[in-house]
């Protein structure tokens, strides 16, 4: 198995992001979309933390906040003891070398007018002092590690299939030998038979280079496979966080339970037997989240208190945190 150390690599402390809603020609602020509403967690060295939730729950925003691609409204992000929100831009630039991102859609995240070689070497030109030959060598080496033919450096992204393009995106993320990578739905746009290839590649690279991942996805079965710990998000807040094994075998938050029960199993015998928890209604708008527990409006077991006060984030057993009044 993976060698997860107990040292924490990244720590997120009560992170908040509110996007303003403006109106009129003076762009007066009339409200805010509470995309991320006070979340805290940490990621240990060489582990994979899975972040799951439905669309609009704030999981991608969280990834961008961590990499400082978006300024946070409040809260702190610590990376290797540096507080990223307060360090100067020159220092942040240095830290950025060690933190990279893999995007969902390899179609949109690669410049169609750049060759594969220049896409992968661009971060090196920006951040490292390598000459042409050294860069070329490094590009070939990277292409090799992501399982592409090193001879493709002069070709353009459109000449590749979706899975191969995602490999190019991974090679680019690895160019500066980072320690930490945010994988934002890296397999969502790929076909089923290609997904496993990319997941295996990510696991191999983690092993080889000692990488730490924040793996953002809505695919619960893939998260179960790749993540060592899993955080479940709902409407801007983390509702439950536990080791992957614990979360899938003993979920305690009513939302986690419903979410897990909604995943179709690829086994007709189990499917016929199982009882689904069907949630009523849609996810409320993050511009106007319910008071108290955000899940209260759809929760099958909500009580009076749930509609009034937000539940505390607490540990119920070692490494298993949950935010629910009824647990």
């Amino acid at each position: 198995m993976k060698k997860v150390t107990n040292k924490s690599l990244l720590k997120v402390d009560r992170l908040v992001k509110h996007f303003p809603i403006t109106k009129g020609i003076f762009r007066k602020k009339v409200g805010s979309v509470k995309a991320v509403d006070g979340i805290s967690f940490e990621i240990k060295e060489r582990e994979t933390l899975g972040l799951v939730g439905e669309s609009g729950c704030g999981k991608s925003t969280t990834g961008r906040l961590i990499l400082q691609l978006l300024p946070a409204t409040a809260g702190k992000v610590f990376f290797k003891d540096h507080e990223l929100n307060s360090i100067g831009s020159a220092d942040l630039r240095k830290q950025r070398l060690q933190m990279q991102m893999i995007f969902q859609d390899p179609q949109d995240s690669l410049n169609p007018r750049m060759t594969v070689g220049s896409i992968i070497s661009e971060p090196m030109i920006e951040h490292q002092r390598l000459d042409r030959l050294q860069r070329h060598e490094r590009v070939e080496q990277l292409l090799n590690s992501v399982g592409l033919d090193p001879k493709v450096t002069n070709r353009y992204p459109h000449e590749f299939s979706g899975g191969q393009r995602q490999r190019i995106g991974i090679a680019r993320a690895l160019a500066l030998s980072p320690d930490f990578i945010v994988c934002d739905e890296p397999i969502a746009a790929l076909d089923v038979s290609i997904q496993a290839q990319v997941i295996n590649l990510l696991e191999d690279l983690q092993e080889e280079f000692g990488l730490t991942y924040l793996f953002i996805s809505h695919d619960l079965s893939m998260i179960r496979h790749i993540a060592s710990r899993v955080a479940v998000m709902y409407l801007g807040r983390i509702v439950e966080l536990a080791s992957s094994q614990e979360l899938y075998s003993r979920p305690v938050h009513p939302y986690t339970k419903a979410l897990l029960s909604a995943v179709p199993l690829h086994d007709p015998v189990l499917e016929k037997k199982r009882k689904r928890i069907i949630l009523i209604g849609d996810v409320p708008s993050p511009a106007n989240p319910p008071s108290g527990c955000h899940f209260s409006t759809r929760c099958p077991v909500a009580e009076n208190n749930c509609f009034k006060t937000a539940p505390e984030w607490r540990e119920i057993s070692s490494g298993h945190n949950v935010a629910c009044h009824l647990v």
Binding site: S193, N200, R224, S244
Partner: peptide, 15 residues
């Protein structure tokens, strides 16, 4: 190739 929701986690996905 599909990962399981129940049972033991596969060490590696078949692809």
């Amino acid at each position: 190739t599909l990962p399981n929701m129940k049972g033991k986690r596969a060490e590696r996905l078949e692809s």
